[in-house]
Simulated scan of single mutants.
Amino acid sequence: MRISATQRTENENRIRAAMDRLLRGEIPPGGKCDIKTLASEAAVDRTAFYGTRPYAHLRTEFERRLQALQRAGEIPDPREAQISRLKTENAKLKERLTQAGQAIDDLTDFRRQALARLAAQHEEIMRLRDATTGTSHVSHLPSPRTTVIGSCS
């Protein structure tokens, strides 16, 4: 069925209005910022946007404007923005997890080395004590006397 020039103009106006709403982020419930939702919002058959159909140029314009917004860092679809934000957050968390794992490995290695050194030092102390017990030329000093300061005789 053919449509008149007036009907085509009205359809294009509805499509452009729907396009502006979607690109501003006014996404209907259950919709996305895509051609399917654009066609639904404009009450136009989706197939009219493809090939040599009458509104293919509007699909191209919509996709170009959407890509321009995305390059500028704006994502009109809140779900797409959330997905993008979550992917970025996920990558940061993975990096933090990797760093934490490396820190744990480093600290575990440090602990192992410290315990080995302490054990070696303990063995050396015990060896030296045993060596001085039998042939002791070491004399023990008497305990220091405690003096009371401030007493007058």
Rank of each mutant, 00 (worst) to 15 (best):
F49G: 02
C33V: 12
A48Y: 14
T47D: 11
R46N: 04
L23W: 04
K36Y: 12
I35M: 11
G31N: 09
I35D: 03
A39G: 15
T37M: 07
D20N: 13
L23N: 11
K36Q: 15
S40A: 15
R24W: 00
L38K: 08
E41P: 03
C33P: 03
E41M: 15
D20W: 01
F49D: 10
R21D: 13
R24N: 12
M19R: 12
R21F: 01
S40E: 14
K36G: 04
S40N: 14
D34Q: 04
A39H: 02
D45K: 10
C33S: 05
S40W: 00
E26T: 05
P28I: 08
T47A: 08
R46M: 13
C33Y: 14
L38I: 10
L23S: 09
C33T: 13
L23P: 06
G25V: 04
Y50K: 00
S40Y: 03
I27N: 03
A43V: 07
P28N: 04
A18R: 09
K36W: 12
E26P: 03
Y50D: 02
R46W: 05
G25E: 05
L22A: 11
L38C: 06
L22K: 04
A39T: 03
I27V: 15
T47W: 05
G31M: 01
D45W: 12
I35Q: 08
I35T: 15
T47C: 02
K32N: 14
L22G: 09
Y50G: 02
D34P: 02
A39F: 00
A42R: 07
D45F: 11
L22C: 07
P28F: 02
D34E: 14
C33M: 10
D20P: 01
G25N: 05
E41I: 07
F49L: 12
R46L: 09
A18T: 10
G25F: 02
D45V: 04
K32R: 15
D45M: 06
L22E: 07
M19I: 00
V44N: 04
L22W: 03
E41F: 05
E41Y: 01
A48N: 13
P28M: 03
D34S: 06
G25S: 00
A39N: 07
Y50S: 06
K32C: 13
I27A: 02
D34Y: 09
D20G: 03
R21V: 02
P29I: 09
